[in-house]
Computed example of a mutant assay.
Amino acid sequence: MTAAAPPMSTKALLTDATTVRLRPRYEGSNICTWIGFKHVNYLVEEAVLVHFADSGAPARRLYEEHGLGLDIVALETRILHAFHMDDVAEAEVTPDTADDDRTLGFRVTLRVERDGSVLKAVAAKVRVSLRADAYLPEPAEPPAEFAPFVVDRLGAEGPTGELARIRVSLPDGDEDAVLASLTEGRNAYAWKWNIPYPYCHFTERLQMSGYLRLMEEAKDRFVLDRGISIKTLLDDRRWIPVVPQSSVRVVDEAVMEEDLYTVYTVEEIFKDLTYTARMDCFVVRDGTLTLTATGRITHGYAVIENRSDWRLVPFDQRVLDALAGMQSGT
């Protein structure tokens, strides 16, 4: 007979650090053997999930026994050294939750071995909400210690008035008018997308990994629109995009099969070496565009020197003009 699991407690979750060894997914190696920023963030997410499990509160048990969905609602990551295919990361998760916080906070450090030395490769900050399940009406009660971090809707823990709403005229079926309103007067690109189930979890919600995939796609769509697509710069000069920093924050919920409008806006070009772009995601509700997530990403370019090495390069005039919106036809 299997012994009943002990009651869940936040003691270890909020006080103990955990360490786990993780390997990036093969899917994340798109150019040569380097791992893209999205899959680096997946390692951070997995480390946090392991921390919950090792602390006696695995995501499955939280949901099945207590009707709580573990949702990462904020993720800020700095990449200090690139990961390669077959690298093994040592991930350390340290609790970082203040007494009055309404989300669970963690700092995550990923380390990797290079030439006999262990380097700090990634530093990340993560915030987690426990979303009470309303899809299945089965009664469920959260453990008392977890109650301060339980929300009925993602974003509810934010300050009053934080949910940004933009009122625009939305003629029936006029997608172009909505996109034009979102990009008017901005160095931006936008598109509409219907949220499919593979981007969701806990039956209906768009999850953090889905927003990371959108952030990656936004870059791809933007540079294609500006005439400097990923493949164009690869073929012309063996340049690849690199990401030293990214962040995403969920401020409201987006639900499966809703139309999501994503806007990618270039904010700053820094010393011809990097540029920062903002991603904003909106859904239409009651004739109003409602912000569901916002984030930022910093990009640069590197030239492929051989199958294992690259180095950063400054933007040339063609790339600078495209990023600034000066390319003909944009």
Rank of each mutant, 00 (worst) to 15 (best):
I269A: 05
K219R: 10
L182H: 12
E268T: 15
V284G: 02
G155P: 04
R165H: 03
V168S: 03
T298Y: 05
T276W: 07
F202L: 10
V248C: 02
A164E: 13
Y211F: 15
M279G: 06
V223C: 08
A218D: 05
G295D: 09
T274L: 13
E267C: 01
T294K: 04
S181Y: 13
R237Y: 04
D220T: 14
V243F: 02
G155F: 01
L206F: 08
D252Q: 02
G210T: 13
A218I: 04
G295V: 06
V255M: 14
E268H: 03
R165I: 11
V223D: 03
E253F: 00
E175I: 04
V248P: 01
E204A: 11
W193V: 04
Y197K: 11
L214P: 00
K219A: 06
T294P: 00
L179K: 08
T232I: 02
T276C: 07
L163S: 09
V266Q: 01
W239L: 11
Y189Q: 11
K192R: 13
W191G: 00
S169E: 10
E257Y: 13
L224F: 09
N194V: 14
L179F: 12
T294C: 03
G173N: 02
Y211Q: 07
S247C: 14
D174W: 05
V223R: 08
T274W: 13
C200L: 08
D220G: 10
F282M: 08
F282S: 03
D225F: 12
T183I: 13
E253W: 00
F282Y: 15
T262H: 00
I269K: 02
L170N: 08
D259Q: 15
V178D: 05
R167M: 06
L234A: 05
T298S: 08
E216H: 08
Y264S: 07
G300F: 03
W239T: 03
T288S: 05
P171L: 03
V242K: 06
D236W: 01
D220A: 15
I195G: 00
P159M: 06
L212A: 09
D286Q: 15
W191T: 07
V250I: 15
L206D: 04
S181A: 15
R153V: 06
V255Y: 11
E267F: 05
F270E: 15
Y189K: 10
E216F: 02
A254Q: 02
D225M: 07
P241N: 03
V283Y: 10
R296A: 05
Q245T: 11
K231I: 09
L212M: 14
K271H: 13
R278E: 14
V243A: 01
D235N: 13
A293C: 09
D235R: 09
T203W: 12
R213C: 12
L273I: 15
V284F: 07
G185S: 14
A254R: 00
V178T: 12
E267P: 03
I228A: 07
H299D: 06
E162S: 07
V178F: 10
G210M: 14
F222R: 06
D220W: 08
K192I: 05
T298N: 05
L273R: 15
E204Y: 14
G161W: 06
L260N: 01
Y275V: 07
A180V: 15
S246H: 12
T290L: 07
R237A: 08
V242Y: 08
V250T: 15
F270N: 08
D225Y: 10
D225P: 01
R165L: 05
S181G: 13
